[in-house]
Design a protein around this nucleic acid. Structure first.
Lengths: 220, 220
DNA sequence: TTCGCTGTTGTACGAATGTAAAACAAATCT
DNA sequence: AGATTTGTTTTACATTCGTACAACAGCGAA
């Protein structure tokens, strides 16, 4: 029997190919059915190669989780940091970005949930999760503070942190249910719902954040 | 070799034993390592018995998810429905119940997340999830409406629904992060954070909900 | 060109998986 | 008490899993 033709790829390229194939398989099949052979096939590679890049399949899955979280937090940190926006617009953009593609994605939520299911059991997953959560919390806090001072609201660190925790909860919960697409309501209303709720949580005047909705629609 | 001693149980008892063993195994080991043999052992039963109660192991896992969601929604519907509380106190209780045991639980979040990870791929999981989500949404809406009218706020159905969606997101997100116990802040502050944020989302005066916090502490 | 290196494939193996079906025992019925 | 039913265990089997390892092939260096 003749061997399969193949071409050598750079280490980094092959590695991320494997990681992305892992994510695709986990999202499509679930953690239990995402076997080494299927991941390798999806990456266009034979199964034995996995052990050449990762000490074990479990470690590869862990690395895939870290890879996913890295992508997501990087995307979050990019949003609302572009030009010199007003503090209110920047905060609104960070919030609203979670309710439009690519953040709003059934695949991403499936992966996120699958991995979160292991946080309690596997310390490595717990570390990755904690790190991602902390980064997003810090980002929110940094975006909240200037808005509060600009609006003349109390902005002591303790209050900012509590508000960031609440805002993060709101975003997470809405993002999950919205991305799952259960069809109980129109997901296109999520940005408006989220921004209005954020206004309330921060005790800002009406339309302080929601008035930046139309701008984003025009820009896209 | 002598056979194992055993005693017959009622069908319902054996069934729920198997379902609870399934949940324990999934929470402790993850979906992939929760094998039929381990679940059976945890239920004090031999592996072959599973097929006597469920057409397949996958169907048993699905049934375990439905069982878990049934427990959780039943617990949610009980909270704040006891005696003749004020609308504000009833709403506060429904919200705060999510941030104290038994709702606030690492095991429950792990299970919830693990199963949500299959929603996108398996329609049976999607149905169970949608049903539980809808029920909690309806419960929140029913608790929100009387508060709004009592406070003289606008309470049309569309607004109530949007507020329920936002409030559910807030609760879900805070519940997840709080139950995972990442140690980034003291989880005992969650009820206060959640109630204050809910006040803001509903645009209620300060302490409308939070003043019911002390009462709950005293009662327990 | 030839050599050496290493990324890659193919195969093999033990363990674990879900499931089927036979053997058995405990309760129920007559 | 004996017969019957059925909940339960046991054994068996085909499959799949993760992994180890030897063989091979592409590529740069000499």
């Amino acid at each position: 029997m003749t061997r399969r033709a193949y071409n050598r790829l750079s280490q980094d390229r092959r590695r991320t190919d494997l990681l992305e194939a892992t994510l695709t398989c986990v999202a499509d099949l679930g953690l239990d059915r995402a076997g080494a052979r299927q991941i390798a096939e999806r990456a266009g590679v034979s199964a034995g190669l996995i052990r050449h890049y990762f000490p074990s399949k479990d470690e590869m899955v862990r690395a895939a989780y870290a890879y996913l979280m890295g992508q997501m937090t990087a995307a979050a940190e990019d949003s609302g940091a572009g030009d010199a926006l007003s503090p209110e617009a920047a905060l609104a953009e960070v919030i609203a970005a979670n309710f439009a593609p690519p953040s709003l994605s059934g695949v991403k939520v499936s992966l996120w949930a699958t991995f979160v299911g292991r946080v309690r059991v596997d310390p490595a997953y717990a570390d990755i999760h904690r790190e991602g959560y902390r980064e997003f919390l810090d980002l929110l806090e940094a975006r909240i503070h200037p808005v509060l001072v600009a609006q003349g609201c109390p902005a002591d660190p303790a209050r900012c942190k509590h508000l960031a925790i609440a805002l993060n909860g709101l975003i997470d919960g809405l993002w999950i249910e919205g991305s799952l697409g259960h069809g109980l309501y129109d997901a296109r209303r999520l940005p408006a719902i989220a921004l209005a709720a954020a206004e309330g949580i921060l005790r800002l005047p009406d339309t302080t954040l929601t008035r930046h909705l139309a701008l984003e629609d025009e820009r896209s």
